Amino acid sequence: MPWFVKIEEGKVDKPTFDQYVPAHKAYIQDLIAKGHKARTGYWAEQRGGMLLFEAASKEEAEAIVADDPLVKHGCVNYQLYEWRIVME
Rank of each mutant, 00 (worst) to 15 (best):
G41C: 06
V71F: 00
D30G: 01
A61C: 11
R84N: 14
K6E: 10
L52T: 12
P15Y: 13
R39C: 13
F17M: 04
E88M: 10
A44Q: 05
A56V: 06
V65C: 14
D18T: 02
L31D: 05
Q79S: 12
G35T: 03
C75M: 07
L31C: 06
L70K: 05
V71G: 00
V65T: 15
N77Q: 09
G48M: 05
G35C: 14
A61D: 11
V65P: 13
V21R: 03
A56W: 06
A33G: 11
E45V: 02
M50L: 08
Y27C: 11
E82G: 12
L70R: 03
I64N: 02
S57G: 14
K14C: 13
L70H: 11
A33L: 12
R39I: 14
G74T: 05
T40Q: 10
V21T: 07
I64A: 00
I7Y: 11
L31G: 05
E82M: 12
M1I: 00
G49L: 09
Y20S: 08
Y20F: 13
Y27H: 09
K34F: 03
E54K: 09
Y81L: 12
K72E: 14
L31N: 00
I64R: 01
I85F: 01
E82V: 08
L80I: 01
H73C: 09
I32L: 05
L51F: 02
I85L: 09
D13A: 07
M87L: 03
D13N: 00
K37E: 15
L70A: 07
E82L: 11
P15R: 05
M87Y: 05
D67H: 09
F4A: 08
D18M: 10
Y81S: 10
A63C: 15
Y81K: 12
A56D: 12
A38M: 10
K11F: 11
Y27E: 10
K11L: 07
A56T: 01
V76M: 15
L52Y: 14
K34Y: 08
K6F: 06
Q19P: 13
Y78T: 03
L52W: 11
W3D: 06
G41V: 07
A56P: 04
D18E: 15
M50Y: 04
L52D: 13
F4K: 03
A38Q: 09
G10C: 13
W3K: 09
R84E: 13
S57T: 15
Y42F: 13
P22Y: 02
P15N: 15
I7M: 08
T16I: 06
Q46M: 05
C75D: 12
W43K: 01
K72L: 09
K11D: 15
E59R: 14
E54W: 01
K6T: 10
Y27W: 12
I32C: 07
R39V: 14
V12N: 05
E8L: 06
R47W: 13
F4C: 10
G49K: 10
Q19H: 06
W3V: 00
D68V: 05
L31A: 04
A38H: 02
E60A: 08
D30F: 02
S57V: 12
E60C: 11
G35P: 06
V65G: 15
D30C: 04
W43L: 06
L80Y: 12
F17N: 00
K6Q: 09
F4H: 02
G10Y: 02
I28A: 03
K14H: 13
I28E: 11
W83S: 04
H73A: 07
V86T: 09
P69E: 14
D13I: 02
I85M: 02
A63M: 14
V12Y: 01
L31Y: 01
G49F: 01
L52I: 11
Q79N: 08
